[in-house]
Measured scan of single mutants.
Amino acid sequence: LQAFIKTLTGKTFTVEMEPSDTIENLKAKIQDKEGIPPDQQRLIFAGKQLEDGRTLSDYNIQKESTLHLVL
């Protein structure tokens, strides 16, 4: 599935991932794409901060969901 990552500066980019991917995997993909170390990334979806060990499906993240990236 493709999801949108929106930063506080208003920049939006897309990442490809599977519902079974962990938040940790997602942070690694963001690092590959944007060069931001995972330990500096905080991802917010539906008002909740996402925990590394959980999966996208745990948070009911669907295709074309928008996640907010806070540094």
Rank of each mutant, 00 (worst) to 15 (best):
I44T: 11
D39W: 13
K11E: 08
Q49V: 15
G35Q: 05
I30M: 01
I61Y: 06
L26I: 08
L1K: 05
I44M: 11
T12I: 13
L69P: 00
N25H: 12
P19W: 13
S65W: 07
D58W: 13
Q31H: 14
G10K: 03
I61D: 04
P38W: 11
S57I: 07
F45L: 09
G47D: 06
G35N: 07
Q40K: 11
I30Q: 00
D58N: 04
L50V: 05
L50I: 04
S65Y: 09
P38F: 14
E64L: 12
G35P: 02
T22I: 04
Q41Y: 13
E24C: 06
T22Q: 03
A28P: 00
F45C: 03
S65N: 08
D21I: 05
T22L: 09
Q62S: 13
L1T: 06
T14W: 09
K48I: 14
G53K: 12
L56T: 03
T66S: 06
R54I: 05
E16V: 11
I30L: 04
K29L: 10
N60C: 05
Q2P: 07
S20V: 04
M17T: 07
L67C: 01
A3G: 04
H68Q: 09
I23W: 02
K11I: 09
L43Y: 03
K63G: 15
K63N: 15
E16T: 11
K63T: 15
I5L: 04
G53C: 07
D21W: 11
V70N: 05
T12F: 09
T12W: 09
Y59A: 03
D39M: 08
E24H: 11
D58C: 03
N25F: 12
I36C: 03
L1P: 04
L43M: 02
I5V: 08
D21C: 04
S65F: 15
Y59F: 04
K29Q: 08
E64Y: 15
D32W: 10
I36P: 04
R54M: 12
E24A: 15
I5G: 02
Q62A: 11
E24D: 08
T66H: 15
F13Q: 00
Y59G: 01
R54Y: 14
E64T: 10
D39C: 10
S20R: 07
T22M: 06
K33T: 08
L71Q: 08
D21Y: 04
L8G: 11
G53V: 06
T7F: 11
M17P: 01
I44Y: 15
D58P: 01
P38D: 04
G53E: 10
Q31N: 09
T14R: 09
K27P: 00
T22H: 03
P19T: 11
K29F: 05
K29A: 07
L26S: 00
K33Y: 09
M17R: 00
I36F: 13
D32I: 13
T55H: 06
L71A: 08
Q49F: 13
D21G: 07
I36R: 02
G35K: 05
L50Y: 02
D32P: 01
Q49D: 13
D58Q: 07
D39R: 10
Q2I: 15
L8N: 15
L67P: 03
T7W: 06
Q49R: 09
D32Q: 13
A3Q: 05
I5Y: 02
F4H: 13
G53A: 10
S57H: 10
F13M: 04
Q41F: 14
T12D: 05
Q31D: 04
D39Q: 10
T7G: 05
F13H: 02
G53W: 14
L69H: 00
T7I: 09
I5E: 02
D21Q: 07
S65K: 07
L50F: 02
E24Y: 14
H68M: 14
G53T: 09
Y59C: 03
L26V: 06
Q31E: 10
E64Q: 10
L50Q: 01
K63H: 15
K27T: 02
G53F: 11
E24F: 14
T9D: 14
P38N: 07
L71F: 09
N60L: 09
L67Q: 01
G35E: 02
R42Q: 12
D21T: 05
S20K: 08
S20C: 08
I23Y: 01
I61E: 04
K63L: 09
E16N: 11
A28G: 08
Q31S: 12
L69Q: 01
L71P: 07
T22F: 05
